[in-house]
Design a protein around this nucleic acid. Sequence first.
DNA 1: AGCAGTCCAGTCGTCTGGACTGCTGTTCCACGAA
Length: 480
Amino acid sequence: MQLEQTLAKYFGYTSFRPGQKEVIEAVVEGKDVIALLPTSMGKSLCYQLPGYLFSKPVLIVSPLLSLMQDQVEQLKRLGEKRVVALNSFLSAEEKRYALHYLEQYRFIFTSPEMLLQQQVQEKLSRMELSLIVVDEAHCISQWGFDFRPDYLRIGEWFMQSQRPPVLALSATATDKVLTDIRSTLSLQAPFEFIYDVDRPNIHLGRVLFEDKADKASWILHHIQKTAGPGILYMSSRKRAEQYSETFKQAGIRAAAYHAGFGAEDRQFIQQQFIDGELDWIVATNAFGMGINKADIRQVIHESLPSTVANYMQEIGRAGRDGKPALAILLYSDGDEELAKFVTTGDLPATIHVDRYQELMMQNVLPSQMLKNGELSETAFRVLDYWMKEEPVEQVKIRLNNLALEKYQSIYEMQKIAQTKDCMRRLLVGYFGQNLRENPENCCENCGILYDAIIKGRTEVNLKIEMVSWENRLKQLLVGL
DNA sequence: AGCAGTCCAGTCGTCTGGACTGCTGTTCCACGAA
């Protein structure tokens, strides 16, 4: 009964959600664990509760600064003071202080990059941890190989013999992602809790187009006609802004979101969307991780996602309240070309490998390439990582294979877009699972009535305006 | 790869079409310039 008591004492709940107890028990027993739970299932409790049973700190590796801040604030609201986010938001002085007293915190959040810094490593090697958590662990696979190589290097650190148990958390993972997680983190016979990936309340629509212009007019018509809140995913920042502008002119409460905006703007837009002041976010794949909005009714993909895993993550943001939601994939022949360009365009090329080698021979720092603008910061970081890991010829093969894997992933996504069979069955199959039954309005090929799932725009908007007016009035009265 | 926008020649149309150009995602951290 100890777990239930701790749950009630620190979190105020009387019972666990599906999966939480099994995962927590395994963590408490000291096993390595992989837990795949849908976001609404309370993943963070899986390390927060054990944090109160252990006497030593829990270290959480998190992919985004905003995610760390959210978790820290959430814990502080629950009354926890011994929590810190060790990241670049800290001044030099604050960082020195946090490092000095690190063993006194109960929860330590950090990024892979910060984790690998020498001073952080030195401190951690001198202290004991009760648990290491890798939050959003699919990032290892999604980002480690060609974007944030430090995600692969956290594995080197995990190989030390005297390490505490590791808990890898994610919402979804394909077989490949699971394999990458196991091997990168050197997990020892992990206990794996894998929840059904299928989300029967998300109905899978798809519309095929002959022509790009048809697609654009379909989108505008659809968004004018149906109710949000919704996310429209695009694969270009510029086009996201153009669409958002068109929507606004048509009287739709929309905003664009991509990594080109500053952190403050992004935070503001995200908050407006969560508060119901915006109906549509027109975004690149920058939008999504850590968004806690339960009532998203639609997720539309204007362009082809680059992997099935990404598609699943993105549509999974809809309908977290369990009510019907619609995911619509828009596809026209040739959409895969843009996806190919976007995913492989920034990979270092063979000439960069040779150039790196040449500079090394001349005793010139390879970072000279970056200063000369010969390749992007991302491409250089990836090249630099692999050149230090493997012989030159191997790096060339590696980079070539990375591009081929990207093409393969896009092809798999394309198959979902083009299939004449059940989209859900195919989708769930990529995650190594079998679909038990097809829900009503399952997918485009099984038959789907859009009107039965989403409401028209006007009926919902009137209601939202009433509610937001009531809220404003309440705020005013409370303010007095 | 492929689309959208711009430029310019041809020839005298306020236009047409071909050539050309630019653009195409995701994060963290640190350092240096202003």
